[in-house]
Amino acid sequence: MCLGVPGRVIAVDGMIATVDFWGVKKQVRLDVIDEPVTPGDYVLNHVGYAIRRIPPEDIGETLALYDELLAGKSGADLMADDVRGELAASVTASASPRPAND
C-alpha cells in the first residue's frame, strides 16, 4: 500500500537529504525521521519523505532470520542439492552484513 524505496544518503542540508537510489539522486525530506541521519546512512523513502533510518545490522539480521526459517524447526531439508549449493555460494559472497563503501 505504500511504495517504499531504500537509498543511501549522500549529503544532508538541514531538513533535506540527497539520497542515491540505485544511481539516481533525489532530494528527500527529513521532517519525519526519528533519528539523526548522516551521509552513508540508509533510509526508506516514501513520497519524498525519509520515514526510517535502516540500521545496516538489521539487514544481516533479516537474512539470518530467513535462513532460520529455511532450516525449519525439525531441521528437515527439502532443498535440492543445486539450490543448497547456490545458496551457500550466495551466503559466502554476502557474508558481511554491512555493505562495503564504494
Partner: peptide, 23 residues
C-alpha cells in the same frame, strides 16, 4: 556496481527464493 543495490538485491536472490518457496 553500487554496493547499496547489491545489498538490496540480496532480497531478490532467486536461489534463496526457490528454497523459501520449497519450504
Amino acid at each position: 556496481t553500487d554496493s547499496w543495490s547489491t545489498t538490496e538485491m540480496r532480497f531478490r536472490d532467486p536461489a534463496r527464493a526457490r528454497a523459501l518457496a520449497a519450504r
